[in-house]
Amino acid sequence: MTDSTHTVPLDLGGALDVAVTAAHAGAAILQAYASHRADLVIDHKARNDLVSQADRESEAAVIEILRERTPAFGIVAEETGGRPEGQATWYIDPLDGTTNFLHGIPHYAVSIALVAHAGTVISGTETLTEDTPVVAVVYDPSREELFNSVYGVGAWLNGHRIACSRTPTLAESVVATGFPFRDFSFSDQYMPMLHDAINTTRGVRRAGAASLDLAWTACGRYDAYWEMALASWDVAAGTLLVREAGGVARDMYGRDPWPIGGYVIAGNRDTTAELQAMIDPHLKRPA
């Protein structure tokens, strides 16, 4: 990027404030609907892929704040789309865990991340060489847990610094995952991975909200996590949370600078390496 506007360092602290405000606005709409779920209008985008007016209204509230306060940034959102542009782009999931929400399961979140593009100046001493998540907010309104992180600074849960677990092996680990539910084309790869995980770990959990799986990995509740065929907005914020909590969150194919394609593996350095070795024999790498 050669445009002079891209030589001005991003205000990461300001961006975090905006993201927190937007996440609370989106969550307020979700919680207003939470006790009236039977009244929600629900559409089917595809098999097991639901969207409700709660998703749409939460996203609208989030986008309104982001556009008003950071008009130069791009926006990529689950329900309304968009494209990367400018110095950085917001990636928004206004309701991660829609199926949980619609069934009254209190495990869902608003997820917002700012991904800075290659060539963007982060500070007086660093210019990014690849696209990188730099601000993250994952807000779980049912538990009133706000996870947030800033590139190079750290990760927090309700103001307290968090860190990934120090569990050294998968045999001692509780790992999280996500089952195929919408795209079943990779089931032949995934099911052997799940079989191995069940037989080599302390336990496997599937809670149904990828952003919270990553946030819980960042704070040490889970020791590792993997999932396939997600969307970019599912993993953008959680990727930074894990990285800033001292862990690893990456594309399981090793191609992209962050898991923008939705094939994510995360944990501390030991568990991630062992988990990667476990899934590799079953992973069909694209041409």
Rank of each mutant, 00 (worst) to 15 (best):
V150W: 15
D188F: 12
L95P: 02
A116K: 03
G178L: 13
R202H: 13
I92W: 14
T89A: 05
I162Q: 04
S142D: 10
N100K: 13
D96G: 02
T167V: 06
R166E: 10
V110T: 03
V134A: 01
P168H: 12
L128E: 02
D96L: 12
L102T: 01
A136H: 03
L170A: 01
D140F: 12
A77G: 11
S123Q: 09
H195Y: 14
I198V: 08
F181R: 12
A109L: 07
G178I: 12
P106F: 05
E79Q: 09
L146M: 07
D188W: 12
G159I: 07
M191R: 14
T120D: 02
A109F: 13
E126M: 11
C164V: 14
P168Y: 14
F147G: 00
F186Q: 06
F186I: 03
A171C: 07
G159F: 14
F181E: 03
D96N: 10
D196R: 14
T132H: 06
V174T: 07
A176H: 09
N148E: 11
H103V: 00
F147C: 00
Y190W: 15
V115G: 02
P180E: 04
T120S: 11
P106T: 02
R166C: 10
G119I: 05
F101V: 00
S187Y: 14
V115W: 15
A116M: 05
A118H: 12
A197W: 15
D140L: 07
S123F: 15
H103G: 02
P106C: 04
D96S: 06
D188V: 00
D140I: 08
T98W: 15
T120R: 10
T200M: 11
D188G: 04
H117F: 03
V174S: 07
G154Y: 15
G152R: 13
G124F: 14
V150S: 07
A155R: 04
I112D: 01
N148G: 04
D140G: 03
S185F: 14
L170F: 06
F184T: 02
S149E: 04
S123L: 13
H160W: 11
Y139I: 02
S185K: 15
T201C: 06
P106M: 04
Q189D: 03
D93K: 08
R202E: 06
T98D: 05
Y108E: 00
R166Q: 11
T80H: 15
T167A: 00
F186M: 09
F179Q: 03
T99W: 09
F184A: 03
Y108S: 01
T177I: 08
A88T: 03
I92P: 13
T177K: 11
F179N: 01
M191G: 01
D183H: 13
D96K: 13
P84I: 04
S123C: 09
Y108R: 04
Q87D: 05
T129A: 06
L146W: 07
I198S: 05
P84Q: 10
R161A: 08
H117Q: 04
R202A: 09
D183V: 09
G104I: 05
D183S: 06
